[in-house]
């Protein structure tokens, strides 16, 4: 079983990013202990379509009480690839977001913008044989948060992704093309390299809109790639 490419931790955000205040007390001070992955890390849970419901990837309908949520109807779609550019089929994606006004459905959330009675804010799907996924939702609003005196998050959707190995596990956030708040956000700026942050910005995709229904955004996600064992017995999956 081949191991995975080393994670480029200069591309990811470091643990300690004081402009994002909560990271100050939640960041380890010791160096991480490097370890070549063992079977414990190179295996991982796999999820099947049978575990999902028919509306799991439709946030416009999966919490419907007496109608559809208010907001900009969008489709978000893309592919899950590994660093070798190979599609990752059978990957579980989970996503969550605020409603059109920037309000989350969570008991600890106290923002004065109202809840939408027809919007829950969670969804999930599994990539097809080509690594493709898609879901339908409404575009989330920006929301204020107690970090700086006047900090606002750009519109964003949280993503959680399982690849084929637990070492590929990833949680990230998707932003929207053209949003000026992206470059003012202390959480976006935890990412040191602007090119890395741009990897989180979904492109407006007019070709995949549903005319007279929903706009579309394309968001591809790259997971860690498995090492090819050149000059050794080629293992399955390579």
């Amino acid at each position: 079983m081949g191991s995975f490419y080393q994670r480029d931790r200069a591309w990811h955000p470091p643990a300690f990013t004081p402009q994002y205040k909560t990271s100050v007390l939640r960041s380890p001070q010791h160096a991480l202990l490097s370890m070549e992955g063992t079977v414990s890390e190179m295996t991982g849970p796999r999820f099947g379509h049978g575990q999902l419901g028919p509306l799991d990837n439709d946030l416009i309908h999966n919490f419907s009480r007496d109608g559809e949520p208010i907001g900009q109807r969008i489709i978000v779609h893309g592919r899950i690839l590994d660093e070798n550019g190979r599609p990752v089929p059978g990957a579980l994606l989970e996503f969550w977001q605020a409603n059109a006004g920037g309000r989350y459905r969570h008991k600890r959330e106290a923002y004065l913008a109202p809840l939408d009675p027809n919007f829950g804010g969670c969804g999930r799907t599994i990539t097809d044989d080509d690594g493709r996924y898609w879901f339908r939702t409404i575009r989330p609003g920006a929301y204020p948060w107690p970090n700086g005196v006047n900090d606002w998050r750009p519109a964003h959707i949280h993503f959680s992704i399982f690849g084929h190995a637990f070492t590929q596990r990833l949680i990230t956030q998707m932003y929207f093309e053209g949003d000026p708040m992206i470059w003012q956000c202390p959480i976006v700026s935890t990412i040191p390299d602007r090119a890395a942050a741009e990897q989180l910005i979904a492109a407006l995709d007019r070709n995949n809109t549903l005319p007279m229904d929903a706009l579309a955004y394309k968001f591809d996600i790259v997971l860690r790639g498995r090492r090819s064992t050149l000059f050794e017995n080629r293992m399955e999956g390579n």
């Binding site: 480029d8 919490f63 690839l81 989970e94 969550w96 459905r105 990833l170 990230t172 989180l200 996600i221």
Partner: peptide
């Protein structure tokens, strides 16, 4: 080679997406 998608914090409302029943989002 492609670059891995960079991580971001799960945030305070991670439960909405990953344990929705636990945080009161029933029926999804």
């Amino acid at each position: 080679m492609l670059k891995e998608t960079p991580s971001q914090t799960a945030g305070p409302y991670v439960h909405i997406g990953l344990t929705p029943n636990w945080c009161g989002i029933d029926g999804v």
